[in-house]
Design a protein around this nucleic acid. Structure first.
Length: 829
DNA sequence: CGGACGAGGATTTTT
DNA sequence: TCCTCGTCCG
């Protein structure tokens, strides 16, 4: 038996070697889940399973790459090449690319990300003359996504009385019309959104049984990582593919299901046994990551949930330190206390900053934490915020590539036609659109084949459009011969994107250029890599990698995928969601307050609350050695000071694991009293009775948040069967309720790429006497046609012009550009 | 066209 | 608070 098998514990080994039956591997936090998965695949290969009969599905590219890497280490890198290992989206997009013609799509279809999808929805709502008050694009896009995730096509949606009733009730009777048009436009544009990759795979498998049979025959072994996060569409794909060989191995942890807002169904893992009655279940319960204290504390939280697979994680590591709980008066103080604690922890335990993470529920919390870390000169890195791929310059460049690759992509066309500005305005675009619609052409097809007269354009506009068409046409022509990298660079240059940013001297423009450079380099890296793989495996078919291919790949990437190793020795700051799958020596969880963590939005129903509890479980189990939990009594939210109560989760941790850092006066029991403080602090473990006897301070809070419902739960009822039974394809419709929350993107606390310290300050420079600058100066009295007279308070040079700030007597302060404003100097100050 | 300005909105977000 | 979006004006 291979060495790597011997090193496994019994449960792990069982889960590895029994690979010829449906298997459910319940893998608690830190239980060596990835290890088991990689060993299982390695073992399968060693047992003679052909690599291309293995389909291994993950949720992130990172997870797939890591797994491939580790299998490669166990066997050889070559051995892993032909395994179908990757994300649901990337593998099925590959299949769809091969089978596109059957669905009436071009094989070089483009992939819309969430914001592309939302923009299209928005545009449709405008076109239909609907109010974007009632039809909020974000809501509509989310509902479309929800429908697709539940395999409800527009036709099925329309035929469904209860969904229709729901929309009427919510005063959005025309939702289904938007949905229809959206699907139609995507198809016209030769585009699929993320959800389509799964939905269309299902349609392909349903409508083309021979195609399904082919893939069923091929994938004799199906493995799914993070199964608790699969949605209905993914679930059905897996079931369909598994029908023939019934050989599915799913790995996951129901306690870490935290993506229901994205359509994930915890029921999929809870009910795996019903789907595969002869499945074997392997429970990995030994935690290798954390101390006993952390594991036991986490258990004491998660056992409050009713929906779960019973298991008992245990750690054989040392008992370890208690979990520190910090109270602060304000969010600002909380941040300062955390920074201080990090500084001393790092010093005392001789840690590197990279071994520490601060986790929070919402990105908005990062700001105060950031400031306090900076105040103490603690290096940090914030994850989240505006992603690389969401940056304007990147989306612009990608839109060009999309248009060049897929001439039907009207969305790309609209984005690109006047970016950078080339004097083609709405009026012109509308004319193009009208002409195109009349002839049933895409926008690009119209522009490249019709004359200016056909589009009813006057001289200047017509010329500009012709020039644009010529440029795209030439780039498009290069596709057949040029290397992807060259073409990418050519697009960046010819489009004028690079030139425009080069002209500007702002730090933003510099960073934009760097991003563009990075993107283009990634084309080269990708093609080189693909060529290397092709060479290794002896395929000549891949001699030249096209831009199409890279584009499909890049659409499915996220920031996590270009993590740079130089981010060493920095404290990690991220949301709890972002931390799933990671581990740190010390973890700080900030903002443990009611309405924040658990989030206010989750409090309406028990299911939401249970998910928050799982989220807290995830947060806590990231810690190897120590955890620090903090809360503030007041916090700035949306510019307003709000008062907060400590999170109920604090009270749910068995107090014997806690080390309370505050308020000994009010909370502590008499000397020698063992654990009274915590009980009175949070009312955990029946402690609330005591509080009701009339303690002050926190007791009042405790009484409130241990509301009747909480108390009445009394003896926990975890034996109760899981609620909300899973419905199968027969009635997927029920899956539509409740409606998902608004899922529009936020982008608070962004700038992950540029360290604040490294930013070039853009402080206004006084205008040089170059040209017109000296005409105005601070203190001068001036007159303006509209605003009357005023005094100049600031003059600065501003990208080729002069920006003048004037305090007007009547109209207040205005900032004017010299080039435009008709300002008359009156008298020197 | 493109910047200034005010209103409104603000969980979480693997792809 | 602080960002995004729409509108208005030079």
């Amino acid at each position: 038996m291979s060495e790597y098998i011997q090193k496994l514990n019994d449960a792990q080994r069982e889960a590895v070697v029994n690979f010829r039956c449906p298997s459910l591997i319940v893998a608690g936090a830190g239980s060596g889940k990835t290890r088991v998965l990689t060993c299982r695949i390695a073992y399968m290969l060693e047992q003679g399973v052909a690599p291309d009969t293995i389909l291994a599905l993950t949720f992130t590219n990172k997870a797939a790459a890591e797994m491939r890497e580790r299998i490669g280490q166990l066997l050889s890198p070559q051995a892993t090449r032909r395994i179908w290992m990757g994300t649901f989206h990337s593998l099925f997009s590959r299949i769809l690319r091969a089978e596109a013609d059957k669905l009436g799509y071009p094989s070089s279809y483009t992939i819309y990300d969430a914001s592309d999808a939302r923009n299209l929805v928005k545009q449709i709502i405008r076109e239909m003359n609907l109010s974007d008050e009632t039809y909020k694009p974000g809501d509509i896009a989310a509902r479309i996504s929800l429908a697709k995730n539940n395999l409800i096509t527009p036709g099925a949606y329309e035929a469904n009385a209860s969904l229709q009733a729901e929309d009427r009730e919510r005063r959005r009777p025309q939702f289904v019309d938007i949905y229809k048009l959206y699907v139609q436009k995507c198809r016209q544009n030769g585009a699929m959104d993320f959800d389509d990759l799964l939905l269309n795979t299902n349609i392909l498998f349903k409508d083309f049984p021979d195609v399904l049979a082919r893939y069923q025959a091929q994938f004799r072994y199906i493995l799914v990582d993070e199964y608790q996060d699969t949605n209905f569409a993914q679930y059905v794909i897996i079931r369909r593919l598994a029908e023939q060989h019934s050989n599915v191995c799913v790995v996951g942890d129901d306690a870490q299901s935290i993506y229901s807002f994205r359509g994930a169904k915890i029921e999929n893992i809870l009910r795996f046994r019903n789907d595969f009655p002869d499945a074997r279940i392997f429970k990995l319960e030994q935690n290798y990551r954390s101390t006993q204290t952390i594991v036991d504390a986490a258990n004491s939280i998660i056992e409050k949930n009713t929906k779960q697979i019973r298991k008992r994680s245990f750690s054989t590591a040392e008992q370890g330190e208690k979990i520190k709980v910090i109270k602060a008066y304000t969010d600002k103080e909380e941040a300062i206390l955390i920074a201080g604690d990090i500084a001393s922890t790092v010093r005392e335990k001789d840690l590197s900053y990279s071994e520490i993470a601060i986790l929070y529920r919402t990105n908005a919390q990062s700001r105060s934490l950031e400031e306090s870390l900076r105040g103490r000169n603690i290096p940090y890195k914030i994850y989240g915020g505006v992603s690389f791929y969401q940056r304007k310059e990147i989306k612009d460049l990608l839109a060009y590539v999309r248009l060049v690759v897929n001439p039907k992509d009207d969305e790309a066309f609209r984005r690109v036609i006047n970016t950078p500005a080339r004097g083609i305005g709405d009026v012109t675009v509308n004319r193009i659109a009208a002409a195109a619609a009349e002839r049933n052409l895409s926008l690009w097809e119209a522009v490249s084949t019709l004359s200016s007269d056909d589009m009813e354009m006057k001289g200047a506009a017509g010329k500009k459009v012709t020039a644009f068409a010529g440029m795209i046409g030439e780039l498009s022509g290069m596709r057949a011969t040029a290397e992807a990298y060259e073409l990418g660079l050519e697009i960046a240059v010819r489009s004028g994107i690079i030139g425009t940013y080069k002209m500007q001297q702002t730090p933003e423009a510099v960073s934009a250029l760097e991003n563009i450079e990075e993107l283009i380099n990634s084309v080269r890296a990708y093609t080189d890599e693909q060529k290397r793989i092709a060479a290794e495996s002896g395929d000549d078919a891949q001699a030249r990698v096209t831009l199409d291919e890279w584009l499909q790949n890049v659409a499915l990437l996220t920031d996590m995928d270009n993590e740079k190793p130089e981010e060493r020795n920095k404290v990690t700051m991220m949301t709890v969601h972002g931390a799933k799958g990671l581990e740190f020596e010390y973890v700080y969880v900030a903002g443990l307050e009611e309405n924040l963590f658990p989030s206010m939005m989750s409090l309406g129903n028990e299911e939401g609350l249970e998910e928050e509890r799982r989220l807290f479980y995830v947060a806590l189990t990231r810690a190897k050695r120590g955890a620090v939990l903090s809360f503030a009594e007041s916090r700035f939210k949306w510019g307003e000071m709000t008062f907060c109560r400590p999170s109920r989760f604090l009270g749910e941790i068995d107090p014997k694991f806690l080390d309370i850092q505050f308020d000994a006066d009010d909370l502590s029991a008499p000397e020698g009293g063992n654990d009274a403080p915590v009980r009175t602090a949070y009312g955990g473990r029946g402690g609330y009775r005591k509080q009701e006897a009339g303690r002050k301070d926190y007791t009042g809070n405790a009484r409130t948040y241990y509301s009747g419902r909480e108390q009445s739960r009394g003896e926990r009822s975890s034996e109760r069967p899981a609620q909300g039974g899973f419905r199968h394809a027969a009635a997927p419709v029920r899956e539509m309720s409740p409606v998902v929350p608004d899922s529009r993107f936020r982008s608070v606390g962004s700038r992950p790429q540029v360290e604040p310290e490294q930013r070039i300050p853009s402080a206004p420079r006084p205008a040089e006497s170059a040209g017109a600058g000296d005409e105005f100066e601070v203190g001068m009295l001036v007159r303006h046609d509209k605003f009357g007279t005023g005094r100049v308070t600031q003059v600065e040079e501003w990208s080729g012009d002069v920006k003048i700030t004037v305090e007007f007597d009547g109209a207040g302060r205005k900032t004017l550009l010299r080039r435009f404003a008709k300002l008359t100097p009156l008298r020197r100050g």
